[in-house]
Simulated scan of single mutants.
Amino acid sequence: MVQQTLEVVKATELKEKPDPATLKFGRQFSDHMFMMDYSAVDGWHQPRVVPYQPLELDPSAMVFHYGQSVFEGLKAYRSADGNILLFRPEENFRRLNESCDRLCIPQVNEEAMLEYLKELVKLDKDWVPSEVGTSLYIRPFIISTEPTLDVSPARAYTLMIILSPVGSFYKGGIDPVGIFVEDEYTRSAPGGTGYAKTAGNYSGAYKAQERASTHGKAQVLWLDGVEKKYIEEVGSMNVFFKINGEIHTPALSGSILDGITRKSVIELLESNGMNVRQRQISMDELIAANEAGSLQEVFGTGTAAVISPVGRLEYKGQDYVINGSEMGETARWLHETLVGIQTGEQEDPFGWTIVLET
């Protein structure tokens, strides 16, 4: 698909902007949305920005029955001088195409999609909040829309991008969270869809999240689907461990999401002279390191929280306290540095941010 002319239909009535102090994740949406359709005859076509609105779909649209859908998540930030910054959006469209390939969805033109996204954010620029910790969450997604119950890849799709202002992930400061290690349910297995951002991966995790909540824990730490022994990822985050001054993280194995924040953290650490080992890590090894006093930090990485320190791990009925349940120096430095780059408060030596000309 080459880049096509973008049609823009502006909303005749604009919504009232929400109070930044009361923003909750994914509850309020901007005035406009992006849409583009796919057919077997025309390919991806008719890119357009239209007023935010409900969809009209046939009850037999395949997405309702077989879940053939993919999505992404990224953010736009307002810098102190009023500019709008996007953080590594090209990585999101690269990963979107990887998910499309796994779900048998036609891939998109990444360069064209980036330009369409820029125009959408420019149009709704007033929805990018300026308060500390706030941002505009961006959700691109593709659904299969062909009206049939045939069990095969659809021949019609719609791609959309919606925008939602979100508040600070940490309302009262960064407090380390408790994590429940799931050893009964499985999120993914080799050969599965674990590395793709597809809807079923997340709804399939609800039962384990319920278990974590009943144990007073905020997130689930998933183990491998074969031996229930090796660490994979935490809920909506990748996970890192600092052991004897060295950083360790589970290697991408096909059942772990290739996180963009994960990638950025690895590049930041290595540029600062720290060694990062991507490898297989077992719970037994982690517990032994904690009991020996060599497990210094545990933290998650993801778009929502950026860096989320972990203070407690519950495994097989026993709680293990990490670093006195305090945020470690590495996690703190990573959070300050990444957020600083994302918001333009710190220099971006990597060329990760894109400044929108508004």
Rank of each mutant, 00 (worst) to 15 (best):
S30G: 06
S152N: 13
L257C: 07
G254M: 15
Q278H: 02
Q296S: 09
M327W: 02
A212S: 15
T301L: 09
T343H: 03
S308N: 08
L149S: 12
I174Q: 14
I307F: 11
T358V: 14
P165Y: 11
G67I: 13
V108N: 01
Y116E: 05
S99E: 01
H32W: 02
D150Q: 15
G259E: 14
N97M: 10
T5K: 01
G273K: 12
P176V: 13
E119Q: 11
M274P: 00
F64D: 09
T358L: 14
V41N: 02
P89L: 07
G245T: 10
F240D: 06
T330K: 14
P190M: 15
V234F: 04
Q46S: 06
A304Q: 10
P47Q: 05
F29G: 03
I84N: 02
G216Q: 15
P129W: 10
Q209H: 04
F93V: 04
G204V: 12
K125Q: 13
F29R: 02
N244C: 08
V265K: 07
A61Q: 04
I231C: 08
G344Q: 12
E184P: 01
D319S: 15
M327V: 09
I256E: 04
S203K: 04
V108E: 00
L6D: 07
F34A: 00
A196D: 08
Q3K: 06
T148V: 09
T12P: 01
Y185I: 04
T358D: 12
L334K: 07
T198Q: 11
